[in-house]
């Protein structure tokens, strides 16, 4: 893979997206999983509109969290199994940037569909209208952070026993702050309080994760490939 760093970066993204489209079902499955979890919540809590609208933000965030977590273990696993991880490490582009490209395409194929479908779910859950735009902004800021943080876990569990359960034990606790600020932003909008502070916190988390996570995941990948 010769060429300028940017070209390599884009070609990694293109490869990932192509793979995602060829395997097609993955993205659909994540979205269906998201829908089913929300509907399970709906059926479990009962159809009382007052209760539903009060917990709607929490339900959407928890379901998004679980969907992202579920899709995470396929981020590096195929590359690890077929050996293309070694090629990625040897590529002219630093591994950190390749990881970033992979995370970005992962977000495009999982986080982004979730954002698109979330207004529909908010409708199901009787969320008040002032919450919609805040929910969307919070998800736009929050789901990339989920992918970034999850990538560290996905890189750490390569080759481990019972890796699926292990992944959830490792990264779900790290998702807690993102969820807290995401939910409190929507709640603030619904109760006519400024939702700016939690949204700013989400933005800060995203920027921090953007700097730290590719670096940590790359370190984890290098030690896995040794």
């Amino acid at each position: 893979m010769p060429g300028k760093p940017l070209q390599v970066f884009i070609s990694v993204i293109r490869r990932e997206l192509l793979l995602a489209i060829r395997h097609g079902a993955d993205s659909c499955m994540i979205v269906s999983f998201f829908l089913i979890v929300v509907i399970l919540f709906l059926l479990g809590v009962g159809p009382e509109p007052g209760i539903l609208s009060r917990i709607s933000a929490g339900i959407i965030w928890v379901s998004a969290l679980l969907s992202v977590m579920l899709s995470m273990d396929r981020l590096f696993q195929p590359d690890y199994e077929d050996g293309s991880l070694d090629l990625l490490i040897l590529s002219s582009l630093p591994l950190e940037l390749i990881v970033l490209a992979k995370i970005f395409s992962h977000w495009l194929t999982t986080g982004f569909p979730l954002i698109i479908i979330s207004p529909l779910l908010a409708l199901f859950l009787n969320m008040g209208t002032p919450g919609y735009s805040t929910l969307l902004i919070a998800l736009v800021l929050g789901t990339p952070t989920l992918s970034l943080v999850g990538a560290i876990g996905a890189a750490l569990i390569l080759g481990a026993r019972r890796s699926g359960v292990l992944l959830s034990v490792l990264i779900l606790p790290l998702f807690i702050p993102i969820m807290i600020f995401g939910v409190s932003a929507v709640d603030a909008a619904l109760t006519n309080v400024s939702s700016k502070p939690p949204l700013l916190m989400l933005g800060a988390l995203l920027l921090t994760a953007l700097v730290l996570c590719p670096w940590a995941s790359a370190a984890a990948l290098r030690q896995a490939a040794e």
Partner: peptide, 16 residues
């Protein structure tokens, strides 16, 4: 303790 190879587990846990 999740790896068959002790040193792999040590390194992964260290990064975490």
């Amino acid at each position: 303790n999740a790896f068959d190879d002790q040193s792999r587990g040590a390194r992964a846990a260290a990064i975490l």
